[in-house]
Amino acid sequence: MSEMTRKPLVEVKDLKKYFDINVGMFKTLPLKAVDGVSFDIYRGETVGLVGESGCGKTTVGRTLLHLYTPTSGQIIYDGKEIKTSADIHEFRKKATMVFQDPYSSLNPRMTVSDIIAEPLDIHKMYSSPEERRQKVLELMEHVGLNSEHASRYAHEFSGGQRQRIGIARSLAVNPEFIVCDEPVSALDVSIQAQVINMFGELQDKLGLTYLFIAHDLLVVRHISSRIAVMYLGKMVELTSAAEIYERPLHPYSKALMSAVPMPDPKIARESHRIPLSGDIPSPLHAPSGCPFRTRCAYACERCAMEVPEFREIEKDHFVACHRVEEIN
């Protein structure tokens, strides 16, 4: 991967996103989908974001791009806080999103060419129809689509091809930063590998920075330089991809990593799983203190009273657990 300078491209500070949920006639409760998340993303790197369904990964991605209005917290891009609608409009040219579902995220009544050019249209990024056409063809080439496909409709394509169309579209504005929300989860293994490689090639060629959300931990490990683990709206651990696999420190990360079924019978036979009982609590009724305490084997009184701080335990290794030093 390309050289990264130690200046963050994206800084997220105590980001919160609450949704109001109706729970009775006149009663709403705040659903704390993201509840105080802080992290940085450096230029040219890929940060993987993992965690169980509903833990807030997509919400982090969308709020980060101001597709959802943050409840509170700061998003700083390239040293500048994104606040006003003018900031957001400019920001949209630099930061885009690729979605999970290649089937529903593309309008079936639009041609491939119009789908890819839509962001160009919105941001008026060409001076003639010819320039628009040229840009579309260039984008299609970037993602390995045949130029003959330009006038066809999205529904005529396979899942892998649709995902390429979606990626070409997010590249249209020449972004620097892309939030990829489960971009390969709906694809078969062989096609998934093609698309994963493409993300890598585009990153090298265009110097892109990614936030890569996925539930397949091997895919995330493959593509990321650093990995963040979320649980119930909070970040519990953030460190290098190698470290999170070899030496996870947070009790939840430990259980999560040990649960990954390794595609290797010998490793699978020898691996020791850390069992995790129970289910993830509802974010409407998150436990007090540490969100993981209802399933944590190390939970103590303090865990119910105090929210553990997300702190740098070792250089570049952040963990939110009161007892992390004792248990490791």
């Binding site: 062989s190 590998a193 093609q194 890598g200 091997l218 493959h222 390794m262 595609p263 290797d264």
Partner: peptide
């Protein structure tokens, strides 16, 4: 095609075609 310990940081070798 599958990412494993040996492929981290490298390109995968996907099956070509659709």
């Amino acid at each position: 095609s599958i990412p494993t310990a040996g492929t981290f940081g490298q390109r995968l070798s996907p099956i070509a075609g659709t």
